[in-house]
Computed example of a mutant assay.
Amino acid sequence: MSRSSLSRFTLLFLGALIAASSYAQPITISGEVTKSLTLQPADLKAMPHTTVTAKDRDGKEHSYAGIPLVDLLKQAGASTGGELRGENLAKYVIVTAADSYKALFSLPELDPEFTNRMILLADSVDGMPLPAEAGPYRIIVPDEKKPTRWIRKVTSIDVRFAK
């Protein structure tokens, strides 16, 4: 292999390593929780996964697998279930993406005691990992007319209290 070919190969290899390492980022859960969390990719992969079917921007149904957002919030000690009454009903969640795009959810719309809709932090679509432009983690909100809260490249989940 020539010296220039070796240099190009080395640069491509290093670029692939950097891209791969930036792809698998941890997710933080903080704010109005009893325990702030930093979940590594291995932690998220080990958690029980649920599957939902939803139409993406392409208008086609896809099968998304991931962790129900409420399960992540419970793990961090956010108010859920019977605790969601009184002033706890004024708590909300802001999900943030790597590009600083944000979406807001009220805690009751995430909780199975209030809704039948399952909102996921997905890590796969149709049995495959999410593509790099959408993953490694994406919020999936089934049955919304516009997928504007389907945040790609999720980096943080913050629970706040409306005062």
Results as ranks from 00 to 15, higher is better:
residue 127 G to K: 14
residue 46 A to D: 14
residue 109 E to L: 10
residue 60 K to T: 04
residue 76 A to F: 00
residue 128 M to F: 15
residue 123 D to K: 02
residue 138 R to Q: 12
residue 62 H to W: 13
residue 82 G to C: 10
residue 149 R to S: 13
residue 38 T to H: 03
residue 102 K to L: 04
residue 149 R to W: 05
residue 147 P to A: 12
residue 141 V to Y: 06
residue 137 Y to C: 00
residue 55 K to E: 15
residue 122 A to Q: 02
residue 52 V to D: 01
residue 53 T to D: 02
residue 47 M to V: 07
residue 90 A to Q: 09
residue 137 Y to D: 00
residue 83 E to Y: 01
residue 73 L to Y: 03
residue 142 P to I: 07
residue 70 V to C: 10
residue 113 E to A: 15
residue 81 G to T: 08
residue 27 I to S: 08
residue 62 H to T: 08
residue 64 Y to R: 07
residue 29 I to M: 06
residue 99 D to K: 12
residue 87 E to M: 07
residue 41 P to I: 01
residue 69 L to F: 05
residue 34 T to N: 11
residue 78 A to I: 04
residue 64 Y to D: 12
residue 50 T to F: 06
residue 100 S to I: 00
residue 145 K to W: 07
residue 47 M to Q: 10
residue 49 H to K: 14
residue 113 E to Q: 15
residue 92 Y to P: 14
residue 70 V to I: 15
residue 117 R to H: 11
residue 62 H to L: 11
residue 42 A to K: 11
residue 48 P to I: 10
residue 43 D to W: 02
residue 36 S to W: 06
residue 60 K to A: 12
residue 123 D to F: 05
residue 94 I to K: 08
residue 139 I to E: 03
residue 137 Y to W: 13
residue 78 A to S: 00
residue 21 S to H: 03
residue 122 A to K: 04
residue 119 I to A: 11
residue 121 L to Q: 02
residue 24 A to D: 03
residue 136 P to H: 07
residue 79 S to R: 13
residue 99 D to R: 11
residue 61 E to C: 03
residue 125 V to K: 06
residue 134 A to K: 09
residue 118 M to S: 08
residue 72 L to E: 04
residue 108 P to L: 09
residue 123 D to T: 02
residue 69 L to M: 07
residue 140 I to Q: 01
residue 96 T to Y: 11
residue 59 G to F: 14
residue 106 S to V: 06
residue 64 Y to M: 09
residue 56 D to N: 12
residue 25 Q to W: 07
residue 72 L to Y: 02
residue 70 V to W: 03
residue 135 G to Q: 05
residue 149 R to P: 00
residue 63 S to W: 10
residue 122 A to F: 13
residue 88 N to R: 09
residue 45 K to R: 14
residue 82 G to M: 13
residue 147 P to V: 14
residue 44 L to A: 01
residue 142 P to A: 06
residue 52 V to K: 06
residue 56 D to V: 06
residue 137 Y to Q: 10
residue 140 I to P: 00
residue 81 G to K: 09
residue 87 E to T: 13
residue 111 D to A: 03
residue 93 V to A: 10
residue 35 K to A: 11
residue 36 S to Q: 12
residue 108 P to H: 11
residue 76 A to V: 04
residue 84 L to I: 08
residue 144 E to H: 07
residue 75 Q to V: 11
residue 136 P to T: 00
residue 64 Y to W: 15
residue 147 P to G: 14
